[in-house]
């Protein structure tokens, strides 16, 4: 009973609060990093160096008026942010945050579920999130959100293909679809897949930027062109849900990148013996540190690059990334067959 219900429940609560708090502070981190790049200070007023700013933001969003446009499709308008947020959060179910730990002599794995199709589960869940964006744009019954929604759907479908194809080459390298097995395979090989599959990592990262609508691919919400894109008509708590989902998605793709390419919870150089003293650090700390480094890259890129245009983005996806990903799969498979003989 305890194994089946209580422990997973506790883990779910911990992960959920962890994710929500991380999201809140991601927003602050983003503003701070952007500010440092742009020779500004960023939020400084709420608390020392603005550390309480997320709380102020959440309070503001809570008390703001929640406007529904008169001619909007009310049910869909309300559902859309939920459809975006829920997949973003349930994707955390299969992410292994660390190795097994023992609590009171009981071995507890640091993940909520280890599905044998874990990686595909993340793809599936991400593909559902698209609906929220399209429907949000459509149900507002307004032109800018509609254009934003259309852009979003086309963009997400295109880049999902590229990202999923990179998963295939990682699966070929690891021999499993389970997130835990992928990490242990990297331990067995003694090398992170980032070095085995550098091309896949690159394509995954670019695709992830596009999938999370981050700069330079933030077209669905291109402020300067479509005002705010698909969530132009949203305000208050419902807008906050979209916002939350964007950042939760960023964390998901960073966590997946960490798991697939940077050895998940493994310490750096897992096969080098004289670095054993690094093992005193709990495994989940390695995971968190790596994920944050990937997240930092997202922020850094946002502060550096201009934005792609819609057709250029599609061309990049279909004519560059997808063929490259397919070529990568073929090469990986060929090498694997050649080595196994």
């Amino acid at each position: 009973m305890i194994d089946l219900l209580v422990i997973p429940l506790i883990k779910i609560v911990i992960v959920l609060t962890g994710v929500l708090i991380t999201v809140m502070y991601m927003v602050l981190l983003e503003r701070k990093v952007q500010a440092w790049v742009q020779v500004r200070l960023g939020p400084m007023r709420v608390g020392p160096h603005g550390v309480l700013q997320p709380i102020a933001d959440v309070l503001k969003l809570f008390v703001k008026e929640d406007i529904t446009p008169v001619r909007a499709d009310k049910v869909v308008f309300t559902l859309a942010p939920i459809i975006v947020l829920v997949p973003a959060i349930i994707a955390f179910a299969v992410i292994p945050f660390g190795d097994q730990v023992s609590i009171f002599g009981k071995p507890v794995p640091l993940h909520i579920a280890d599905l044998n199709v874990g990686l595909l589960y993340i793809v599936a869940v991400a593909s559902i999130g698209v609906y929220g964006i399209i429907l949000g744009g459509w149900s507002s019954n307004s032109k800018y959100p509609l254009l934003g929604g259309l852009r979003a759907s086309a963009q997400l479908i295109s880049y999902e293909v590229a990202v999923t194809l990179t998963f295939v080459s990682v699966i070929l390298a690891s021999g499993s679809l389970s997130m835990v097995d992928i990490v242990t395979a990297q331990k067995a090989n003694g090398v992170w897949f980032a070095f085995v599959q550098p091309l896949a990592l690159f394509i995954y990262f670019v695709g992830a930027l596009a999938e999370t609508n981050r700069s330079p691919f933030d077209l669905p919400e291109a402020e300067q062109e479509l005002v705010a894109g698909f969530h132009t008509e949203y305000s208050g708590m419902r807008f906050a849900l979209f916002f939350l989902a964007e950042y939760a998605n960023m964390i998901v793709v960073s966590a997946v990148a960490t798991t697939l390419f940077f050895g998940g919870w493994l310490r750096p150089f897992p096969s080098v013996a004289f670095l054993h003293f690094l093992d005193v650090v709990p495994t989940w700390i390695w995971f968190v540190v790596k994920t944050f480094l990937v997240l930092y890259l997202f922020l850094w890129i946002r502060a550096t690059l201009p934005r792609y245009r819609y057709d250029q983005l599609m061309r990049l996806g279909w004519k560059v990334l997808i063929p490259l990903a397919i070529a990568n799969i073929i090469v990986t498979a060929a090498v694997k067959v050649a080595l196994s003989d």
């Binding site: 199709v117 595909l120 593909s127 559902i128």
Partner: peptide
């Protein structure tokens, strides 16, 4: 499980999005 996930990816996540489009 594999079929279940593929069902979601291909039908719910892929094809129907195109319908919506």
């Amino acid at each position: 499980q594999f079929l279940a996930v593929i069902q979601v990816v291909v039908y719910a996540g892929g094809i129907v999005v195109l319908y919506l489009f």
